[in-house]
């Protein structure tokens, strides 16, 4: 018993000492390396380590043709597993939630449209989260990567959009009140793509705050238009006459925006 008591008192004594010294210890500050110092350090270590391999280094142009998987891996390691898992977790939760609501709560004739509204809102928020502002060091790392900024951000967009799309596919076939699951898949894929591209391109151009606000306004406008002006809304049933033209127009707009963004990125990089 005495031994146990002694061990306990030693542990308590150590805890007390630690608590007591915790704040005082913080006064021993040290110089802090800047992000530039870190970049220099990385360059020095790599140069030192790779001297014999330097000649064999792969040129960036090679990455553009055959290195998509490398590019995806680089984005994965750039943000780290935890960050990607958090993004995925958020998308899974939201998809399950809206899917369940479409199936069980929303009236049958409204379920399809509700799903489109919810899935487009999810992609806007997912893009906003994944493209959130980075710290200075990460931004610099991204600029100095062997891959172009355009390639890095585009791959990130594809990863988020692709994951959300795959997640949502099963719901196309279980949401009630729809005759054709494949048609419904097409019906919500285009708005999903449209809102993802809008949010992405605007975030690249004006920053995430502005992008999120405008995207949510467009989303709200579409939601409102469905009631008052269904001819211009993406959130309509497939049997509406305006369904195909609106889908086509939004697809063209999304591709044009993406093309304009790509050209401006290329100009900037040149």
């Amino acid at each position: 018993m005495r031994g146990g008591g002694s061990v306990k008192s030693e542990r308590e004594e150590l805890d007390e000492l630690e608590k007591k010294w915790m704040s005082r210890m913080t006064s021993f500050t040290t110089p802090v390396p800047t992000p530039e110092d870190t970049l220099d350090l990385i360059a020095r270590v790599k140069e030192q380590a790779q001297k014999p391999e330097k000649q064999a280094e792969v040129a960036p142009s090679d990455h553009q043709t055959g290195g998509w998987m490398d590019l995806i891996i680089s984005q994965w390691s750039f943000y780290g597993m935890r960050s990607w898992l958090m993004s995925a977790g958020w998308m899974i939760c939201f998809s399950l939630m809206i899917g369940a609501q479409s199936i069980t709560i929303v009236p049958k004739d409204e379920a399809g449209v509700f799903w489109i509204q919810a899935v487009t809102l999810t992609i806007v928020l997912s893009i906003a989260y994944t493209f959130r502002p980075q710290n200075e060091g990460m931004a610099m790392l991204e600029r100095l990567s062997v891959y172009s900024l355009a390639a890095q951000t585009f791959v990130r967009l594809c990863m988020v959009m692709g994951f959300q799309w795959i997640l949502a596919i099963p719901f196309s076939f279980v949401i009630p009140g729809l005759d054709n699951g494949w048609l419904f898949l097409w019906q919500w894929t285009i708005p999903l793509f449209f809102f993802a591209v809008i949010t992405f391109v605007m975030a690249e151009r004006w920053g995430m705050g502005a992008s999120l606000s405008v995207s949510l306004m467009i989303w709200g406008g579409q939601w409102f238009a469905r009631k008052v002006l269904p001819e211009v809304s993406l959130m309509v049933q497939t049997e509406e006459l305006s369904f195909r033209p609106v889908q086509l127009v939004s697809l063209v707009v999304a591709f044009l925006l993406l093309g304009a963004w790509y050209i401006s990125q290329r100009r900037r990089e040149i």
Binding site: Y79, G80, R82, M86
Partner: peptide
Amino acid sequence: GADRSIENDEAS
């Protein structure tokens, strides 16, 4: 100073 959310050292 680094973002903790990106931390996965063993994977890196």
